[in-house]
Design a protein around this nucleic acid. Structure first.
Lengths: 145, 145
DNA sequence: AAAGATTGAAGCCTCAATCTTC
DNA sequence: GAAGATTGAGGCTTCAATCTTT
């Protein structure tokens, strides 16, 4: 038998879920109002931007953004159709492919950040002290697997 | 021109999003392994359970769980089909309806909690000190609109 | 006109099955 | 057989349009 979960724990969990949903809704809404694609696109573009040679194996990208492969496969189809990324054959392992950031993708990333960054500033950064943010990082890091 | 968003702020935001996804995936996975429905069902059942007379107007329920009305409408169809809830006509305002928790819904709520509570305990409660949880609540509360 | 709620169509996610290569 | 990736089918979400009542 495990120990009973405290009310404080459940309350903290509930706060985390509720605040997350609120922030997500705000961020997605701000992007949409600006005529920009959803956050999932930003995550992909950013990971590619920060990768060596601005490219990643598809499964590496999937691990970084916590998206199952069958989901990523179709998300990349959409980004590909918009010429934001391209898939290239992988010489080292013919089963897989590289995903590469294209010029148009770099531009969109910048555009999206100009909106997304403002959302983070107004709904999050401004409302917390520096110590709050540091504490938040420290506490959340304890939860990572 | 607004102030530039600090790196600490962006890092804290990213940690929040990443940890949330990880916890959600774990919770949904544990429920599924136990042959139980997704978390969205639990949210509805719990709000009804805690409401006066275990019933709520549909729009009130939607506000509590942060779900748009068109989404809630179909979620309730599914819960209704399983006889977990029922919709009743509203005398005070004939446009709307009450959503009422049924016996089968109360039973399922208990079953789901027996799994969900364990997930919260093992992935969250055990990994944080009491002060961590209190700090988390305090910080997240600052972000609520 | 606005509020509460529903619905058709289209898009996205999920599961299982599949294909190719290791 | 396992790993990387794709696909068809079914379920869920989303958008816009709709209906009824206020």
């Amino acid at each position: 038998m495990g120990k009973r979960t405290s009310g404080t724990a459940v309350s903290a969990w509930a706060h985390l879920f509720r605040v997350y949903r609120q922030l997500l809704e705000q961020a997605e809404g701000d992007l949409k109002k600006a005529g920009l694609p959803p956050l999932g696109w930003y995550d992909v573009l950013l990971e590619l931007h920060d990768a060596p040679e601005q490219r990643l194996r598809q499964f590496e990208l999937g691990e970084k953004i916590l998206l199952p492969k069958y989901n990523l496969s179709r998300l990349l189809d959409r980004l590909d159709a918009e010429q934001l990324i391209s898939r290239e054959a992988c010489k080292e392992d013919a089963r897989g492919s590289y995903v590469k950031l294209l010029t148009k993708g770099r531009k969109l990333l910048k555009q999206m950040w100009s909106v997304y960054g403002q959302t983070i500033q107004h709904t999050f950064a401004e409302k917390l002290t520096t110590k709050d943010k540091q504490d938040l990082i420290r506490i959340l890091t304890k939860l990572k697997t």
